[in-house]
């Protein structure tokens, strides 16, 4: 019972770190997926006096992935009350050309500004509609969300790291007598502190396994999947191999690092 309690405090602290880290990863992946989704639906419309070939448009800025001409038929249809065919044909020739530009990825506001500048360098382009107001709002909202989650994850990381440090200090007090006695008989530092390292590595494993179970459940939970589906994005919530290796690596590295600090700070008492 005492042994379980000894492990539990470190396992819970490590688990909180792993939890906040994986949540950050999920949010990051969701934002990337959402940005991709937005990029697919986002387009810039340009008005040109002359017909522009695909090569010309694609050469203006690397951000432009494709361009498509918008037909003027719908505009003309509205004016088509009593106009004869000849005039309609003339009107078609004199109306400016409209192009819808699809972008390679969801642009930052700075990228939108650069794109507009590059487009206006072409003398035949007279007007650009970038829907920047909507774009800016969505983009800033995404950044704000990511920022809040990052700060939250970082706070949990700092607080729990301090908790782990404190817990290992308690361990050090518990083990210091044994470590000192071993030192009197010439045990090297690694042997004296082997128990401390072993316990912290075991706890890192336990915390990683708990995190694996928790996120495996979350990744298959119907309600959570439905939420992602409702905003039309598909995200890998938990990759059982890559993510688990990452979580395990972080947990073990952190445990070893903190245990090393404790061991280096140990002073021999006789």
């Amino acid at each position: 019972m005492k042994s379980i309690r000894n492990h539990l405090s470190l396992v819970i602290a490590l688990l909180s770190i792993l939890f906040s880290m994986q949540i950050f990863i999920i949010v990051d992946r969701s934002i990337d997926a959402y940005k991709e989704n937005l990029a697919n639906n986002y387009a810039v419309v340009i008005v040109s006096q002359k017909r522009l070939s695909d090569e010309v448009v694609l050469g203006i800025n690397k951000l432009i992935a494709s361009s498509g001409e918008l037909t003027a038929d719908s505009v003309i249809e509205r004016l088509n009350s009593g106009m004869d065919k000849k005039n309609i044909e003339f009107l078609k020739l004199t109306l400016p050309k409209f192009y819808k530009l699809k972008l390679d990825h969801y642009p930052t506001p700075q990228e939108v500004i650069t794109l507009k500048k590059d487009l206006l360098k072409n003398s035949s382009i007279t007007k650009i509609e970038d829907f920047s107001h909507n774009h800016d709002t969505t983009y800033k909202l995404l950044l704000l969300f990511k920022g809040v989650v990052s700060v939250f994850a970082l706070s949990i990381f700092v607080v729990t790291t301090l908790l782990i440090f404190k817990e290992l200090r308690i361990w050090q007090f518990k083990h210091s007598e044994r470590m000192s006695i071993m030192g009197l008989f010439g045990a090297p530092v690694w042997l004296r502190s082997a128990v401390l390292f072993r316990l912290s590595i075991v706890d890192a494993f336990i915390a990683s396994i708990f995190a694996f179970g928790l996120f495996s459940y979350i990744a298959t939970n119907a309600w959570i999947l439905k939420q992602f589906e409702s905003i039309d994005i598909s995200v890998v919530i938990f990759n059982p191999i890559d993510d688990f290796v990452l979580l395990l690596g972080v947990a073990i590295s952190l445990s070893i690092l903190l245990a090393s600090f404790i061991v280096l700070g140990h002073k021999e008492e006789v």
Binding site: E177, R178, I181, L184, G186, A187, P188
Partner: peptide, 29 residues
Amino acid sequence: NFLRRHIGIVFQDYKLVKEWSIEKNIMLP
């Protein structure tokens, strides 16, 4: 440490590891 591995020490307050059995305490060196 090398030197201490060739010395046996007996203290007035014994300095035994409390959480180890007698057998394991003797095994230490």
